[in-house]
Computed example of a mutant assay.
Amino acid sequence: MKKNNADQILMLLKMRGELDASVIAEELNLSKEGARQHLVKLFDEGYVEKVCKSNGVGRPFTYYSLSQVGKDKFPDSHADITVQLLRSVKKLLGENALDLLIGDREQLTYARYSEKLGNAKGIEDKLSKLAEIRSCEGYMAEWKKENDCYYFIENHCPICAAATECQQFCRAELKNFRNLLGEEFQVNRTQHILANESRCVYEIKPQLKSAVK
């Protein structure tokens, strides 16, 4: 099996979640049979899981998703040492010191992002620039628009272990997004990797005029 095809399939499953072979074939410009062969090999190697689902008509379809082994191919950056450091700060200096540490990181991150988004023209340009920044940091970020609502999607969390240990990271991230996108938009997290979902999703929609101060 060609390594590049296998990696592309794993990346697609990481980005899109559960898919069947026909969708994978279409997305990656493969034949259906070729996609199935790659998926069988990935399943045998333990990188993907499969489940059969019936749509009510005809035979059931087989859907594929990443197994834990497959997810581990998208690593959490320096997970062990980060968690150890967080625990040491909390133990030696206390919870308040940890809050101050994360607060300082939040401010530095906001300043850096704000500078890069400073010349953005409108919400879509902001989201594109933010997705580029976050992707460079390992979050595999993208955005899409549905009707009047935008969705900012992070398909991977490179600090997942740290965020699991200390969820102030997630709260700081949401606060920064709200500040960066402006008070004319309402930003809420609707999916969360720490809630055992495959990605973090932020719903961004215009504030009601009466709600904007």
Rank of each mutant, 00 (worst) to 15 (best):
M1G: 15
K2N: 13
K2G: 07
N4K: 15
A6M: 13
D7Y: 08
Q8A: 15
Q8H: 11
M11P: 00
L13I: 01
E18M: 14
D20W: 12
S22H: 13
V23H: 11
V23A: 13
I24A: 02
L30M: 13
E33T: 14
E33W: 08
G34I: 02
R36F: 12
H38R: 06
V40M: 10
V40A: 11
D44H: 11
G46L: 06
Y47H: 02
E49L: 13
E49I: 01
E49A: 03
V51G: 00
V51R: 15
K53A: 07
S54H: 03
V57N: 09
R59Q: 12
T62E: 11
Y63V: 04
Q68K: 14
G70R: 06
D72C: 05
D72H: 02
P75Y: 03
A79W: 04
D80S: 10
V89I: 15
K90F: 01
K91W: 03
G94W: 02
G94H: 03
E95V: 11
E95F: 06
N96D: 10
N96T: 09
A97T: 03
A97Y: 03
D99W: 00
L101M: 14
I102R: 05
D104F: 06
R105Y: 07
E106V: 00
E106K: 14
L108V: 13
L108G: 12
A111L: 14
R112D: 15
S114Q: 13
E115Y: 11
L117T: 00
L127M: 05
L127Y: 03
S128C: 01
K129Y: 02
L130R: 03
A131P: 10
R134V: 00
R134M: 14
E137C: 05
W143S: 07
K144C: 12
K144Q: 12
N147Y: 03
C149W: 02
C149G: 04
Y151Q: 08
F152D: 00
F152W: 04
E154L: 08
N155I: 03
H156R: 14
A162C: 00
C166G: 02
F169V: 09
C170N: 01
R171G: 12
R171H: 10
A172F: 01
A172S: 15
A172V: 01
E173M: 09
L174S: 05
K175N: 12
K175C: 06
F177D: 09
N179D: 10
N179I: 02
L181V: 01
G182Q: 05
G182I: 09
E183Q: 10
F185N: 09
F185P: 10
F185G: 07
V187P: 06
V187H: 00
Q191I: 03
H192W: 00
H192T: 11
N196K: 09
Y202T: 07
K205N: 10
L208K: 12
L208N: 10
S210L: 12
K213L: 09
